[in-house]
Design a protein around this nucleic acid. Structure first.
Length: 412
RNA sequence: GCGGCUGUAGCUCAGUCGGUAGUAGCGCCAGAUUGUGGUUCUGGAUGUCGUGGGUUCGAAUCCCACCAGCCGCCCCA
């Protein structure tokens, strides 16, 4: 038999109800913050991600689904920020009034080793606010994403905040760090000895216990921020405190994408094991430029790992988002069947979730019970003749005679 | 990409020393009950033992490879 390919999966009910819940909440919150939806293509020219995300990143160097389309290299999107920026530039949305506040949701693709909460086709809910460098926007974006998490019904999340500086101050810091690491290389784990050369910032985030004493003595990037980045970060923190949003400054938080500048953040959740990061985001003031555009388009955004969010919700509040069946119609006989069909249509038009059965009454009630119907309406010769149906409350077992016009009122 | 663990019914799992698949639990279907579900009782269906190869008289069981899932690493949502 053909099975779903590695790292992809079918999302089935009842889990899809949780997915819908999360997406409904997100759309509602986005609307409140004046964000509008953008839909970009699932695949783009490979060059977009190479330039946007960064040639040397893991994503681009080894995790992309790339194919040759009659001479043009195309790639299934591994993330969406580069695409959104491309669209903004292409359609000159920067000329529109105000900050462009765009949200998206949909599948992304990365060819990584699958694990729980990590899939090759995974889903992200994200947003980008483009057109302002103001730290107030950073704070609003973080507030927005926390609002989505809160309304989605997840507790126990943790905001980690950092600033990774800008092209003015980061290289200075990296150099300092690298110099210092060279002196203590012998005390570091094998991975860190490699990172000290290839990705010195990453050493700061190493979890190996033996490295900790060394790491503690390494400089913090926050002490090296320039005269622009430093007050920006201070302002973001101030705004978050004004709003009562708890956060933890993590000078060692490293982001894997090249386009990040200044503010970076991450939200983690305990129930997720090794893949404990539920969303990540940050500012990317130089992205438009690295895509070759001459326009100025400073921005900040985030993306939620929807698979992980759904997983966390399912593990912390199971059974909260079950599908509801309001009414099961149990017709008895041919005439009743026709009668029930029309009745079902009318009730469905009124917004009720209705299912119809057939065959023996016992079978219908049994099925109604298994489907979790709140009520069952028995439609038989007696009922058609008298004009009053037997409405059975499936929880209490109570059964009453109800005329057609009053059925809906009893379902409330 | 690297390391480890696992793979038997729809699901959870048992299967001893290698002897030809389980009165297992849940679920599903039917009957007890021709207009009353849930409880109970009775009966029934469902298997490429992940896939392929090897060893053996004989493999779910031992060996190899592959596939998939999980855990960890790398990295990240």
């Amino acid at each position: 038999m053909i099975r779903a390919v590695r790292g992809t999966r079918d999302l089935l009910p009842p889990s899809t109800a949780v997915w819908n819940h999360v997406e409904d909440v997100a759309r509602r919150v986005f609307r409140a913050y004046n964000y509008q939806e953008i839909r970009t293509p699932i695949f783009e020219e490979t060059a977009l991600f190479a330039r946007g995300v960064g040639e040397e990143t893991d994503i681009v160097s080894k995790e992309m689904y790339t194919f040759d389309d009659h001479g043009t290299m195309l790639t299934l999107r591994p993330e969406n920020t580069a695409s959104v920026m491309r669209a903004l530039i292409e359609h000159r949305l920067d000329q529109q009034p105000g900050v462009q506040k765009l949200y998206y949701l949909g599948p992304m693709f990365r060819r990584e080793r699958p694990q729980k909460g990590r899939y090759r086709q995974f889903y992200q809910i994200g947003a980008e606010a483009i057109g302002s460098e103001s730290p107030a926007v950073d704070a609003e974006v973080i507030e927005l994403v926390m609002e989505i998490l809160a309304q989605a019904g997840i507790a126990g999340t943790h905001v980690l905040l950092n600033s990774v500086g800008c092209p003015k101050c980061r290289p200075v810091f990296t150099e300092r760090l690298q110099a210092q690491l060279a002196g203590v290389a012998g005390d570091l784990c094998e991975d860190c000895q490699r990172r000290a050369v290839t990705n010195p910032l990453r050493v700061l985030d190493c979890k190996v216990p033996a490295c900790q004493p060394v790491i503690e003595r390494l400089p913090s990037i926050l002490d090296s921020l320039c005269e622009d980045c430093s007050p920006h970060f201070a302002a973001v923190r101030q705004y978050l405190e004004d709003r009562g949003i708890p956060y933890e400054v993590r000078p060692r938080l490293v982001r894997g994408l090249d386009y990040y500048r200044r503010t970076t953040f991450e939200v983690t959740h305990g129930a997720l094991g090794a893949q404990n990061s539920i969303l990540g985001g940050g500012r990317y003031d130089g992205l438009a430029e690295s895509l070759g555009a001459r326009i100025k388009a400073p921005g900040i955004g985030f993306s939620i790992g929807e698979d992980r969010l759904v997983l966390a919700i399912e593990e912390t509040s199971p059974q909260q988002h079950r599908h509801v069946l309001d009414l099961f119609l149990a017709p008895m006989g041919e005439a009743a069947q026709r009668h029930a069909g029309v009745l079902a249509r009318d009730l469905r038009r009124d917004g009720w979730t209705v299912e119809t059965g057939e065959g023996k009454l016992k079978r219908s009630l049994d099925l109604a019970n298994k489907l979790g119907a709140r009520f069952t309406l028995i439609v038989g010769d007696d009922e058609i003749a008298s004009g009053a149906y037997s409405l059975k409350n499936m929880t209490t077992g109570e059964q009453i005679a109800v005329p057609r016009g009053e059925i809906a009122a009893h379902l409330k």
